[in-house]
Design a protein around this nucleic acid. Structure first.
Lengths: 227, 227
DNA sequence: TCAAAAGTGTTAAGTTTACACCCATGA
DNA sequence: TCATGGGTGTAAACTTAACACTTTTGA
């Protein structure tokens, strides 16, 4: 076969789609947008974009996320590639799905508004474009299953948080209630979740101790959440 | 934006690469081939191929596997997509990696030979083309981590097998020895692994009971291996 | 007769779960 | 003063891990 064997083969559009998770008031939320171009313009969909020449897949995913949120350095993880022939009714597009976890309060709301984007509770998603519901389902599964190894708290909560917030986040992800005492017992055993001297007076009258993650301690051990 | 917004974007070659696992004489093995075309012709690599027009990703992976082994209906699972700009020195190719598990004795050796393919122990792989070592590493990790939920025994062993073979398979995958009594105790609790009346006289003088998987029982429960 | 693999239970250690009350504060 | 969320320990149930000897048979 000749050195240009490659050129005997077809090429395809390649896209990335982002399943962007945030957490607010006890709810796990996904950022949706109304599709800005035809076909299916205006339908609810995940934020996505085409991979460009000279652009790594991961970079494409980061670019798309930054366009929509204004944030950089966000936790992202590739979760699967969707390549069925007819998945996109516009033309054949092979799409790589990325899960993103971010602090919902840091998102640039103006950018969100410009992109007709909107946070929706994971439990009340509308029908989405193409196979996007399936992508969300896969991302949610990944999150549930890997909650022990993905440091979700680092990503989805603000830098200082109460244990009740952390517990509520875990409950929202796994979809069931946890025992408060058992939860706190385990948090206490994790050196990388540090109690600070700060007191939160917003979420309760009495005031709750604020905690934070210690990235260094986390990176060192092969720490695991098991909540 | 116009309906032909898609056409403003670049297209790429998309390939699939298969990490094909087999099990023989206590060793977990990967099927490698010598690359049949330039650049890097003759170097060790995974078996791969370009996705074609009108072909789903999963179908492409199955086609490639069948070309090399003669087998159909093999267990395959997508494990990740590799899309760095310069990963392939021939041209930009975005490659979707698939893990495959099969019964090594069913493989068509003639086809293997035609493709200059060869089974190599997972622990003594040569340097492979491009990012293929990384793909194998990822597939092996997937296998290790999901050994509880992927029914590896169904796939990697012949229809009838001894418990020693099954244990040896699990040991090869996780890379450590297991306790024989604890292993057998757990197998006994799994309704979908059935003892048959057959005796294997090949692997021992005394003879060992042959077992088989019961697909129906497995499909029903959300069974788990925990070995 | 002996080498090689098959087969078989019990106990201790560790982990997980269930569970209920007092505290501090602001409205 | 009371409603709200914060904070705390123990015991039972369950799961996991460690451990050694007897059996069968072909060479």
């Amino acid at each position: 076969m000749a050195p240009n064997y490659y050129s005997l083969n077809p090429k395809f559009y390649v896209a990335v789609d982002c399943i962007i998770f945030g957490f607010r008031r006890g709810e796990l939320k996904v950022l949706l947008q109304q599709r800005p171009f035809a076909p299916h313009r205006g339908e609810w969909s995940l934020m996505g974009g085409f991979v460009q020449e000279g652009e790594d897949l991961d970079n494409a995913a980061n670019r798309v996320l930054t366009e929509l949120t204004g944030l950089e350095g966000v936790y992202m993880k590739q979760i699967g590639t969707f390549g069925n022939v007819h998945r996109d009714s516009g033309d054949r597009v092979i799409s790589v799905a990325y899960l993103a976890l971010l602090d919902i309060d840091k998102v640039d709301e103006k950018l969100n508004h410009e992109h007709a984007a909107h946070w929706e509770d994971i439990n009340s998603l509308p029908p989405l474009l193409f196979d996007h519901n399936q992508m969300v389902k896969m991302a949610h599964k990944e999150l549930r299953e890997r909650i022990s190894s993905i440091p979700v708290g680092f990503q989805l909560l603000p830098p200082f948080f109460t244990l009740t917030q952390l517990q509520s986040l875990h409950e929202a992800i796994i979809g069931e209630k946890l025992d408060k005492r058992n939860f706190r017992k385990r948090i206490n055993e994790m050196a990388f979740i540090e109690k600070t001297d700060l007191i939160d007076k917003v979420t309760s009258r009495r005031g709750a101790a604020l905690y934070r993650f210690n990235y260094k301690d986390f990176a060192n051990g092969e720490q695991q959440f098991k909540l």
